[in-house]
């Protein structure tokens, strides 16, 4: 690899042992690269890894309003499951995550395939499908909260149009409110899947498709045998990103339902925030945060590992 070759040649030139090329300037030039990265690395050690360690330690203590450092062991990890709100949060995350990922993928892929049929005004349509990704989840939540409010939103609009039997009050129904969050989240993120899949579709070699077409392959077969296998890495990337978004979901829930009605739409992120800043239970806040991190790490670390390995070969 050229980069390594240059680096090792340079190391040989300057003599890593430090003999010969003395002087502050020479030393500085040799180590400048490390010095430049050092502040960021130090920040990462403290603000990423040091803070994670601190949170892990707090999760093993009985901290309430203020951090205490008396280790009580893994009690919190057992006791947290006795809280119905945490149970609700985990169930919601699972339900929300599956629906959000599935629907965003399906809609995003559908839009990408439709847009890939030599469409006029493709640029404008793409812009329209993707713009929600540029705005804040708080804005999205505010807009949908209002649209879904039965007294003034879509339900009232349908009644005004004469369809008086129309009922759409999910947002006030503890059993259905979580689906309103799915709806708003899919509205926001599906354009992102569309953009990724469309970019991948454009990268598929036209010649291969033409050849297959000439050989009499059907469109379905071309998709199944050529296109989908070629763009499969993008599906993986999109899935990882969506899963990551799902686990971190916080703003949208706060703006759309504020975790209500009651605690019906709690998710782990709102649980953690509530325990940390409203209920003075630092122990449970830290415990829930560590479990979120562990979930993300279980997905991301193998993904990054395989990405960096394949990147090296390329």
């Amino acid at each position: 690899m050229p980069a390594d070759a240059v680096a090792s040649a340079r190391a040989a030139d300057t003599g890593d042992a430090g003999a010969g090329d003395a002087g502050a300037r020479g030393w500085l030039q040799r180590h400048l690269s490390k010095l430049v990265v050092a502040p960021s690395f130090a920040a990462a050690l403290i603000f990423f890894y040091g803070f994670i360690l601190w949170t892990v330690i707090i999760s093993l203590t009985g901290s309430r309003m203020l951090p205490s450092y008396e280790i009580v062991g893994f009690e919190n990890y057992v006791n947290i499951w006795r809280l119905s709100r945490w149970e609700t949060a985990v169930e919601n995350l699972f339900l929300f995550g599956v629906l959000f990922m599935g629907l965003s993928m399906a809609l995003g892929c559908l839009l990408a395939v439709l847009l890939d049929q030599r469409i006029r005004a493709e640029g404008a349509l793409r812009t329209i499908y993707l713009y929600p990704m540029a705005i804040s989840y708080i804005v999205t939540g505010t807009a949908w909260k209002w649209l879904l409010d039965p007294g003034i939103g879509l339900e009232k609009a349908m009644h005004d149009l004469g369809w008086t039997g129309f009922a759409f009050n999910w947002i006030n129904d503890p059993d259905m409110a979580i689906y309103t969050i799915v709806l708003a989240a899919v509205w926001q993120a599906s354009g992102f899947v569309m953009a990724m899949v469309l970019a991948a579709l454009r990268g598929v070699d036209d010649e291969i498709i033409k050849a297959a077409w000439l050989d009499g392959a059907s469109l379905a077969n071309i998709y199944r045998r050529i296109i989908i296998p070629t763009i499969r890495p993008v599906f993986l990337s999109a899935f990882v990103i969506l899963m990551h978004l799902a686990i971190k979901t916080f703003d949208l829930v706060m703006a759309l339902t504020a975790a209500g009605p009651g605690t019906a739409t709690s998710v782990p992120a709102t649980f953690m925030y509530d325990m940390a800043f409203q209920r003075d239970r630092l122990d449970f806040a830290a415990t829930s945060a560590v479990m979120m991190l562990a979930t993300v790490a279980a997905i991301i670390v193998p993904y990054l590992y395989s990405e960096i390995r394949s990147g090296k070969r390329g």
């Binding site: 990423f48 601190w54 953690m272 991190l293 993300v296």
Partner: peptide
């Protein structure tokens, strides 16, 4: 200007972009 351990440094920074920020809220 690659140095020994550059990949490890990069990997450690990269993981930071995936941390759920809940895990740093309290110490921050």
């Amino acid at each position: 200007w690659r140095f020994r351990g550059a990949n490890v440094v990069f990997g450690m920074l990269l993981f930071g972009s995936f941390i759920p920020f809940q895990v740093v809220l309290l110490p921050m």
